[in-house]
Simulated scan of single mutants.
Amino acid sequence: MDMDTVSALAEGRQVVTVRGAKNATDLPWNPHPAFDGVSLKHLVTGADTDGALSCHLVRVAPGKTLKTHVHEGQWELHEVVAGEGVAGIDGATTRYRPGVVAVIPKGLAHEVTAGEAGLCLFAKFFPALL
């Protein structure tokens, strides 16, 4: 799965909140501030929801890892939309492939490693990532 394929997941999609609508295609991919080979497309931000939730497309390049980390204040929901990989959640290993959804409670250590084809997640945070 090349990055053009991942980018196409947002093509023509519209994100609508009470603050207005935005075209997902026009939103930029942002390098993750801590993890090499990981980028995010911020579809819904805390500013859109008064801090209640945020939603992001997360693309992980082949073989790259969102190393072990914890979100102390947010529950996280991963929906695998493309590619494949492996998640470690509180010491348990889960195979990530399209159709898998994982719920990660706040304060729980987790990591995600993309497979040979890369990985794309729809990640939601409750409350929003700041």
Rank of each mutant, 00 (worst) to 15 (best):
D2H: 10
T5F: 13
V6Q: 09
S7F: 13
L9H: 05
L9Q: 07
A10C: 08
A10W: 06
A10P: 04
E11K: 13
G12N: 06
G12I: 05
Q14N: 11
Q14P: 09
V16E: 11
V16Y: 10
V16M: 12
V16C: 10
V18E: 12
R19E: 13
A21Q: 15
A21W: 12
A21Y: 12
A21K: 15
K22D: 11
N23T: 14
N23P: 09
T25S: 15
D26A: 14
N30F: 12
P31M: 09
P33R: 09
A34Y: 10
D36F: 07
V38W: 03
L40W: 04
H42W: 09
H42N: 12
L43H: 02
V44P: 02
V44L: 01
A47P: 05
T49S: 03
T49R: 02
T49F: 00
G51P: 05
L53C: 10
L53R: 07
L53K: 06
S54C: 03
C55E: 14
H56E: 13
L57R: 00
V58S: 01
V58E: 03
V58K: 00
V60C: 00
V60A: 00
G63S: 05
G63I: 06
T65L: 07
T65M: 08
L66T: 06
K67W: 12
T68Q: 12
V70R: 07
V70Y: 04
Q74H: 10
E76Y: 07
H78T: 10
H78F: 15
V80Q: 02
V80N: 04
V81H: 01
V81I: 07
V81P: 01
V81R: 02
A82T: 04
A82L: 08
G83V: 02
G83A: 05
E84R: 10
E84I: 08
G85C: 05
D90A: 15
D90N: 14
G91K: 07
A92T: 15
R95S: 13
P98E: 01
V100L: 08
V101Q: 15
V101R: 15
V101L: 15
A102H: 14
A102K: 12
V103C: 13
V103D: 14
V103W: 14
V103P: 09
K106P: 10
K106T: 11
G107A: 06
G107N: 03
H110I: 04
E111R: 11
V112I: 07
T113Y: 06
A114E: 01
G115K: 03
E116T: 10
G118S: 03
L119N: 01
C120N: 05
C120Y: 02
C120Q: 01
F122P: 06
A123K: 03
K124N: 11
F126I: 15
F126H: 13
P127Y: 04
P127R: 00
A128D: 02
A128H: 00
L129I: 10
L129C: 08
L129P: 04
L130M: 12
L130T: 14
